[in-house]
Simulated assay, not measured.
Amino acid sequence: MTPVLFASLVAGAILIALFGVGVVAILLLRARAESHIRQRLAPEAGGLEAFEDTPSTPLLASMARGGRVMEGIVDTEGESGRLLLQAGWRRADQRVLWYAFQAALPVLLAALVLVFWAFAQVPNKGIMLLLFSFAAIVLAFLLPRWILRGVAASRQRRIKSEVPLFLHLLVLLFEAGLSSRQALASLVREGRGVLPELGLELELLIRQLDAGADIAEALKNLSESVAVEDLSTVLAVLRQVDRYGGEVREPLLEALGVIEERRSLDLRERVNLLSGRMTVVMVMFFFPALLVFVAGPAFLALIRALGEVNVR
């Protein structure tokens, strides 16, 4: 590599890193300006300015606003809001920490790139620096979304595992003569130990009902926010019973049968996939060893016989 080309690559990598840091700084300043404007126009409104009401430092609040602006650039359809609800991060302090992480990640990645440039001793250092700078910019915008989707999916799986027990408890409470609201309130009071994730969602549901919300609308909002198919089936049954009346035990038992059948099919599918993977493992590792063990003696005897024939 010629010195001129190497110097050009190094200069390009440094410019890309400085550009990333500059973009973060501009976003932070823009977020601060928008926050002041919103406070002057509508001090009582929520949103970005709501971060200042949390018990956090001004620096953390500013970073949270910058992270919110970065999220708005990447997420134009509001997916992050749904993922935050599915992850269970509803409190203001949780969201402050998350948005601050989004704002701090580009600075951290830029620092890692500069450390690589200062201390790494590798061939073609300029090309590697250019590639790392590009990867840092991409990861700064995409990595938070990947992390948030993983956390939300993990919590959805935990809620899905709690739905059968939730159904059994509901059937018992309805058989005891409780109404839908009373049964849900009883689960919130006494079932937090056995329904840790679903109990949080039901507690929020009870608060909405105590504030005067319609139970059918509240159940629909819960179904849409959590986005777990099994739970949506149960909540749809509760909405129909609340709207049209009638026996609730039989529909819940039917829903439980559908959920258990669906879980059985999912388990069979996982077993089939696992069997296929184990077949690949056996062919790659077990079959060669078995072939050597079974056919090895015969192969060695054949070689010895051919060697004796050649000697004769």
Rank of each mutant, 00 (worst) to 15 (best):
T57E: 13
P123M: 06
A92M: 11
P58S: 11
A120H: 14
S80M: 15
S80D: 07
A92V: 06
L130Y: 06
G72C: 08
D93F: 08
A111R: 09
Q156G: 11
F116H: 05
R149G: 09
W146Q: 14
R65D: 01
V151E: 09
F134L: 11
P106T: 00
G66C: 12
A135G: 02
E52M: 14
R157L: 15
R82L: 15
G88W: 10
A50S: 14
F101V: 00
A64R: 08
A92S: 02
A50K: 04
R65I: 06
A87M: 13
F119K: 09
R95N: 15
V115A: 05
A140S: 12
I159M: 09
P55R: 10
I127L: 05
S56K: 11
V96Y: 00
L112Q: 14
L114F: 13
P55Q: 15
M70L: 09
R65A: 10
Q94H: 04
R68M: 04
Y99G: 06
Q156E: 05
F116G: 12
A92F: 03
R155W: 02
V151C: 03
V74M: 03
V151W: 06
L129D: 00
A152M: 09
Q156N: 14
F141I: 04
A100Q: 08
A111W: 09
P55C: 08
L84V: 14
Q121A: 15
L114G: 05
L114N: 02
L85H: 09
S161V: 11
R68Q: 06
V138H: 14
A135H: 00
Q86N: 11
T57K: 10
F141A: 13
S161E: 07
E162K: 02
N124R: 11
V115N: 06
L131P: 05
Y99T: 03
A111H: 02
G66L: 11
L130H: 08
R82C: 07
R158A: 15
I137N: 01
A110R: 01
L139M: 10
T57Y: 13
V151Y: 08
F132T: 01
Q94F: 05
G72P: 09
A103L: 06
L129I: 11
V122D: 07
Q102N: 08
M128C: 07
G126D: 09
T76H: 10
V163Q: 02
R68A: 13
F116T: 03
E77T: 15
V74Q: 14
I137Y: 00
S62R: 14
A61P: 07
D93C: 04
V113I: 07
W89Q: 14
L84K: 04
A61C: 11
E162D: 14
G88I: 05
G72W: 02
L97A: 14
R82I: 11
S161G: 03
A136E: 01
L139V: 01
S56N: 11
V107T: 10
F141T: 01
F119G: 01
V122N: 06
L83G: 11
D75F: 04
K160T: 07
A61S: 13
G67C: 08
W146C: 04
A111F: 05
R149T: 15
A135R: 00
Q121T: 07
L85W: 06
V122M: 05
L131M: 05
G81E: 15
F132P: 01
L114D: 03
R95Y: 02
F101I: 00
I137R: 10
A135V: 01
T54W: 15
Q121Y: 10
A120D: 12
E162G: 14
A50G: 14
R158W: 02
T57M: 07
M128A: 12
G81I: 13
R68K: 09
L143D: 00
S161L: 13
